[in-house]
Each structure stands twice: as C-alpha cells, then as structure tokens.
Design a protein around this nucleic acid. Structure first.
Lengths: 152, 152
DNA sequence: GTTTAATTGTTCAACTCATTAACTATTAAC
DNA sequence: GTTAATAGTTAATGAGTTGAACAATTAAAC
C-alpha cells in the first residue's frame, strides 16, 4: 500500500516536469532553489541519464541546440556541470553533473517529493491513479499530433 | 449528448490555458497564428471580460504590472488592442480589443476548438470528464498552497 | 585517397517575457 | 493642504528562444 502511494508520487513528478503550470515557479519559490525551472529540468535529465549530449537535450526538450548551449553555459558557470570531449568522436561533448550539481539535485528532489506528497495525499489513491493514466494517454496523443496543423 | 462533448471541450480549453505544456507552442505552430502563447492568453482574457485593466491582468496571470505593459505594447503595435483612459479616475487605462484583435481571436478560437475536439474525441467521455474534475481539484490545491514552502 | 556531404556544437543578433527599482500622474486620507 | 496609496510606464538586467553562419570533425561517394 505504501509503495503504491510512492509510485503515484513518482508518476506525478514525472508528469509535472513535462507539464508546466503557467505563472508558477515551483523550483524557485516553493523548493527554495536558485535554479530556474528549465535549469532544474536539465539537472534532472542529466542526473537520470548519468551522461548525455547537447543534441540529446535539444531533442528531449524540443528546442534548438543553441538554446541548450545557453542554458548549459549558465549552469557550467555555477559549477554544476562538467563537459568532456569524446576521445573517439571529437565532435561530441558529454555533459555530466559535478559533485556540487549532484548534491543540489538530490537536495531539490527530496523537497519536491515532500511537496508533491503533501497534495497527492489529499486525493483518493484510485482517483489520482486514474488521473495519471488519462494524463499519460493525453500526453502521448499531444506528442503524436505535434505536427498536425488546423486548416482554415 | 452532443452538448456534453462540447462542454468537455470547453472545459479542456480552459484548463489548457491555465496549464502550459513545456516546449509546445500550440498557438504558433498548430493554429498558425503569429501570436505567442502569452499574447493569446491576454487576447482571450480581454475578449471574455470585454474590457479590463493592466492591474487586473497582472493579478490574473500572477506577474508584475511592468510585464503586462511590455506585452500590451507589442500587441498595441500590432493593432490588436486599444487603450482608453477612464474619465473619472484618470489613472486607470481600459484595455479593449480592436476590430482586428477580435477577428484574430475568433479565428484562433475556432481552430483551437477543432484541434482540441480532434483529440478529446479519442477518449471515452466519462474518462475525460473524470480527468477534468480531478484536474480542477488539483489546480485548486496548487493555487491554495502557492505560498507553502518546503522546510529543510 | 580526395572531394563532398552530414553531424556536433558554438557564437551572434534579435526577439519575448520576467523582475526590480525609480518615476509620473492621479486620487484618497488625515 | 500635505501625505499616502494607487495605476501605469520606463529602464536596466537576465533567462530562454530562434535562425543563420561558422568551425571542427566524421562519414560517404567516387
């Protein structure tokens, strides 16, 4: 039963990172980090993949590579991210978290977990579970129809 | 039955304007408007209230008034918005849509309706209805706990 | 093997949106 | 009538975005 709730919380966090409430700066305001939301998304992605590239991030977040370069630069200046050139293919640069970056990430995730837990618990587990399932389906449909254009 | 689906579509559009999928620029890409999402939100709000003020918009979208001034300026330059000073209280400026602004709004809404309809129809009406209800409750909880901060 | 094409990532200029702080103009309060 | 508060703007600054041009490197064509 307990791990059931934990799973719901994890699923919600996953969703709330693909969805973004307008006018809400959860990371800065409620979690008390000086990262922007976008910077936290990237911190999170790098942490989970251990190591990734700019192209991969651009693909994942559906923005141009130059946008990723700008964000990574700011995070690099804060000492959160390391850049390592691939020895075989010297075009690619691997991005990894520094110790400082990892500590910040772990600390934030802990707080995010507590925050999400606090309002997930206000729902009947069945209701929130059904909600998340529909949400995932909807998200998938939105992704699939991303290039569909409405005619006149 | 038919108005049931229409209602669901309306509710979804309302929600999707308070929620904002990251990396998705629905208005520009799928609807084919040259407005940004933020500009469309404001177009929409002014249309629905007939007339409003900068302060009201700042309150509604939870940003500072200077941010609203910047957006309104851009929309004013495009000829979408009119500014009218109140004759009694000459500090306040009423914002209304021009004919051009209103035409653009109506045109966009029509396309948005079609787009949302196309994927709402992929769900069982019961499922999407339940989804929207939970979403509204969740949204309310998020708004209420906006000032809650997670402790160390 | 040399030329051509594709890929990875950066830099730069221009845009939108956000905040903070200082400011004008006007109205309200005492 | 002086002081407070309110409505809105302006200016400086920063983050994130795009598009275009670029360098460096690798892959493909021949």
């Amino acid at each position: 039963m307990l791990e059931n709730i934990q799973e719901l919380i994890d699923q919600y966090i996953d969703l709330s990172f693909s969805v973004h409430r307008k006018g809400e700066s959860l990371i800065r305001d409620q979690i008390g980090s000086d990262l922007t939301n976008d910077q936290h998304y990237i911190l999170r992605y790098i942490s989970q993949t251990e190591s990734c590239t700019s192209s991969e991030l651009a693909e994942e977040f559906d923005v141009k590579k130059s946008a990723i370069t700008a964000i990574i630069n700011r995070m690099w200046e804060k000492g959160l991210i390391q850049r390592t050139r691939d020895e075989k293919d010297r075009r690619v640069v691997y991005l990894t978290l520094t110790e400082k970056g990892n500590q910040l990430y772990v600390n934030c995730e802990e707080r995010i977990y507590k925050l999400v837990e606090s309002f997930i618990k206000k729902f009947d587990p069945k209701e929130i579970k059904q909600f998340l399932e529909t949400y995932k389906k909807l998200n998938q449909i939105l992704i699939e129809s991303k290039d569909y254009k409405v005619e006149e």
